[in-house]
Design a protein around this nucleic acid. Structure first.
Lengths: 161, 161
DNA sequence: GTATGGCCTGATACACTGTATCATACTACA
DNA sequence: TGTAGTATGATACAGTGTATCAGGCCATAC
């Protein structure tokens, strides 16, 4: 099995293209903002994007090993902090894991669909949901500033299979 | 300051009544289901209800100390598992902490309003939200089985203050 | 009344996740 | 070139959660 084959996503898309696009978008966005997408941060982003499943910080740490010396946890967490701050990565709270974001341009909080069968996570980013939650909270006098929405269930592919 | 005073909630309610009600509801519900609300589980539930702020598992562990010998982590986690399974306690994913549920009768997944100022958490349990999320996910071919909804912001009290 | 099986708790050890702190290296800019 | 600010290295530790085995308690059956 080639390395490329390993990157084929269950739904059959060419995942290498996903990764390339994500990295290019990140480069562009960081240049625009004057943020520094260092080799380390770029590598971490690449590893987060290695699949559409959330990746644990220590998984990333392990896979960074190949480079020179093995980095320590803070190295990975700092890189993740940077990527999250710039909207390039989301943290999936219910899994203590991290997922690449495919539209980091506009700041947002996504809603995540977590398949309990294949582990893939897709992002909804639905504005109706966002507004509904804001409104419902406001009705109770609560001013919502950030939202965590994570649904666990079965994705279309796994339901069909 | 009396022990009772310690239990006064910011909004001014008599929190001891909250706790009593929660414990009584739990007793009733466990009897109905043939589940065993053992002294340990009851004590853990009581500690979870010590405030309207989520409580960490190790906080509970520490406060169990008073009894005989100091219990070990699995003891607390098992009790929490039992309480969660019976809908008596919610886990707040974004905080790795646990919160008492005030309507454990009907099985549900609540939506949580977390005040970043005072730390109090209130539950919405809004069926519109639940249905909206289910529907939006279904539109994407996703069959949502469980929902995690946690909003961070400012509660009415803290906005006023 | 004892035996058996199931559930609950004790206890040890460990795995996983995340952070505080100080030191070093790099980069950009004056 | 020097300097300030940023990024990374390195050590140590804190916080969260689980695997596993042993012992205890209780109900039911015999």
């Amino acid at each position: 099995m080639t390395d490329a084959a390993l990157h084929i996503h269950p739904t059959g898309h060419d995942h290498a293209a996903c990764v390339d696009e994500a990295l290019e978008t990140a480069e562009t966005l960081c240049v625009e903002r004057g943020a520094r997408l260092t080799p380390l941060r770029r590598r971490v982003l690449e590893l987060v994007w290695s699949s559409h499943r959330p990746v644990g910080a220590y998984d990333i740490l392990g896979r960074l090993d190949g480079s020179a010396r093995k980095p320590a946890p803070p190295t990975v967490y700092r890189a993740l902090d940077f990527l999250i701050e710039h909207g390039l990565v989301h943290r999936i709270e219910s899994m203590n894991a991290y997922l690449g974001c495919n539209h980091p341009e506009q700041s947002h909080t996504g809603q995540f669909l977590i398949c309990r069968e294949c582990g893939n996570v897709t992002e909804m980013d639905d504005d109706d949901v966002r507004q509904t939650l804001r409104r419902k909270a406001a009705e109770r006098g609560f001013d919502a500033r950030s939202q965590t929405v994570e649904l666990v269930g079965l994705c279309a592919t796994c339901r069909a299979g």
